[in-house]
């Protein structure tokens, strides 16, 4: 029997937790947490794009919504995840349901543009929050807690939490893609009218997918704010939405675990190229082109038999 590809990925992610890292611990945990957090965001976008065929160019809006959820509660001295997480998820729904309903009236390029427009609204709205730093962003006074426990306070605890949440989101996405709901979602991507003609409402299926994907990305945003102890309008910038799309496409939208590979590849490439030259995106561009041309099916497609 072949090992599912997700097993080596998570074994690798768990290694820093059990290996002695010595002086490098801080660096490794930092980098690893970034991979895990962006991995969650990429997983959620992959759920929309890979399964649903919904090319959202505004997914970073949810990162900002998650981050500002943490920031605004922080300003009100609320740090308990038992409050923070539900508030962040609810905030993402307040955004995803109306904007998703509008965006789903359109298809193709118009859908891409309208999701971009909505995320720009979040970008400017965040910049206008004068009480929370405006364009300069907001620095947290403390990280999110779990009642009196502070699992995010140490680099080790923070990384472990991120990996655990990544694993949870991965298992959730995999189950959902294979479920009745995921089957309907995958079917609508192929032939909307065929599915509707069987009695399934494509609009409510797709809107539900957008809501779920948005909640997952908002969770990533909350973690991102905790990682940097900072929330900034830039979290919603369109470049970030583009980065998320790159992760999904590079990793391979046809598989669930591809999103994690894509996030890892982008973060590591940034790290490696960024230390060579500050103009690293010049190198990053051609690398991306080569990767998309030569790895059909993305990183997740490497070594898989062609067919």
């Amino acid at each position: 029997m072949r090992l599912p590809p997700s097993v080596p990925i998570f074994l690798l992610l768990a290694m820093p937790l059990v290996l002695p890292l010595g002086a490098h611990a801080g660096y490794v945990f930092d980098l690893g947490a970034r991979i895990a957090i962006l991995g969650i965001a990429a997983l959620s976008l992959n759920f929309l794009l890979g399964a649903g065929g919904l090319v959202s160019f505004g997914h970073a809006a949810y990162l900002a919504i998650g981050a500002y959820g943490v920031a605004i509660l922080d300003a009100n001295a609320i740090h308990n995840a038992a409050v923070v997480v539900p508030v962040v998820l609810a905030a993402s729904l307040v955004f995803s349901l109306p904007t998703g309903a509008v965006a789903l009236r359109t298809r193709g390029v118009n859908f891409i543009m309208i999701t971009l427009a909505f995320s720009q609204m979040v970008y400017f709205a965040a910049g206008s929050l004068a009480d929370y730093g405006g364009d300069d962003g907001y620095t947290l006074t403390a990280r999110t807690t779990w009642f009196h426990a502070k699992p995010l306070a140490t680099p080790y605890g923070f990384y472990a939490t991120c990996v655990a949440l990544l694993l949870g989101c991965y298992l959730l996405c995999r189950a959902m893609v294979a479920s009745r709901f995921g089957r309907a979602l995958r079917a609508i991507r192929q032939d909307r009218q065929r599915v509707q003609g069987l009695g399934i409402n494509p609009f409510s299926i797709q809107l539900t997918a957008i809501a779920i994907g948005g909640m997952m990305a908002a969770l990533a945003g909350a973690l991102l704010a905790n990682a940097a102890e900072f929330a900034s309008p830039a979290y919603a910038a369109w470049q970030r939405s583009g980065d998320l799309l790159i992760m999904v496409i590079l990793g391979g939208a046809g598989s669930v675990h591809g999103a994690i590979l894509g996030a890892a590849a982008v973060v590591l490439a940034e790290e490696a190229l960024g230390s060579v030259t500050e103009h690293w995106r010049i190198l990053y561009g051609p690398l991306l082109v080569l990767a998309v041309i030569f790895f059909r099916g993305g990183l997740a497609g490497i070594g898989r038999p062609k067919g």
Binding site: S179, R180, R183, A184, L198, G199
Partner: peptide, 24 residues
């Protein structure tokens, strides 16, 4: 799976998120 989707639509809810549809 093409035909199972039709059976699924007939059977009622597509809002089930956890059980693998292919094993129903």
């Amino acid at each position: 799976e093409n035909v199972a989707l039709a059976a699924q639509a007939k059977a009622g809810s597509s809002f089930r998120f956890f059980r693998a549809a292919a094993r129903e």
